[in-house]
Amino acid sequence: MGSSTGDNDDGRPAGVRDRDAEGRARNARPRDGLGRPLPYGAPGVARQPEGVVRTPQETVAEAQALLDAGKPFHAHEVFEDAWKSGPEAERALWRGLAQLAVGLTHAARGNVTGGARLLRRGAGALEEWARGAGQWRPHGIDVAGLAGWARGLAGAVEGARPVVDAREAAPRLR
């Protein structure tokens, strides 16, 4: 609901919506390292550009750097680019990796149910892809190790560690 001055509660003029260059609705609010929206005008973490086509090696290296920095939400966006732009035969691999990153994001935010669910879903997707493709180390990615990491973290967030430190819990992709 807007204020009596005709502004939105976030300080934007009434009726002004965030749009990208193509006119699609986009939330331009700054985000923190876990992708949570911050108030307009607050300093935030730079967003990952969307639609970047990278080699698999570039994707893994950039995602690992983001995971190591405690930014799994941003790593998920890198995996999402690979999922959307990569070869059809690898899309399920990249989607599974994106699900792991989002699962870690939710776990770090304290969303136990969503975090555990996405971690297990991502682990299952990776295992299914690897069985079908007959590859357990595509592009050097340790699919079996990541699936085990995800299932272990899912159990941990449901147990004694309901909130995890994204940096400390970050997996090794290779």
Rank of each mutant, 00 (worst) to 15 (best):
E50I: 13
L118Q: 05
P72W: 10
A133G: 06
E58V: 05
A61I: 05
A107G: 02
G122H: 03
V157M: 13
A150W: 04
L118G: 00
P37D: 10
L146I: 01
G86A: 12
R91N: 10
G159K: 04
D81R: 04
Q64G: 14
R117I: 06
A144C: 02
R47L: 10
Q57M: 08
A69I: 07
L93M: 01
G33P: 03
E80G: 11
V53C: 10
P37Q: 10
A147E: 02
D81I: 06
A61R: 04
L104H: 03
R47K: 08
D68L: 07
V78T: 02
W129T: 00
L97K: 06
V45E: 15
Q57E: 15
G96I: 03
A61Y: 06
L38M: 07
A75Q: 04
L104R: 07
P39N: 05
D68C: 09
N27A: 14
A92D: 07
G159W: 04
R95I: 01
R161W: 10
G140L: 01
A108Y: 03
R151W: 09
A154I: 06
P37Y: 14
G140S: 05
A150Q: 02
G33K: 13
R54H: 07
G70Q: 15
H74Y: 03
D32R: 12
W136V: 03
A116R: 11
P72N: 13
R109Q: 11
G70R: 15
L153G: 00
F73A: 14
Q48T: 14
H74E: 03
A69Q: 12
G41T: 12
K84W: 14
G41M: 08
P30N: 09
G159C: 09
E127G: 08
R29H: 12
T105M: 03
V52L: 13
A107K: 00
L67Q: 06
T105W: 03
V60I: 15
A42G: 04
G70N: 15
Y40Q: 14
A75V: 08
A154W: 11
P138W: 00
A75I: 10
E77R: 07
V157I: 09
Q99C: 02
H74P: 05
R151V: 09
A89L: 02
R109Y: 00
D81S: 08
P162R: 11
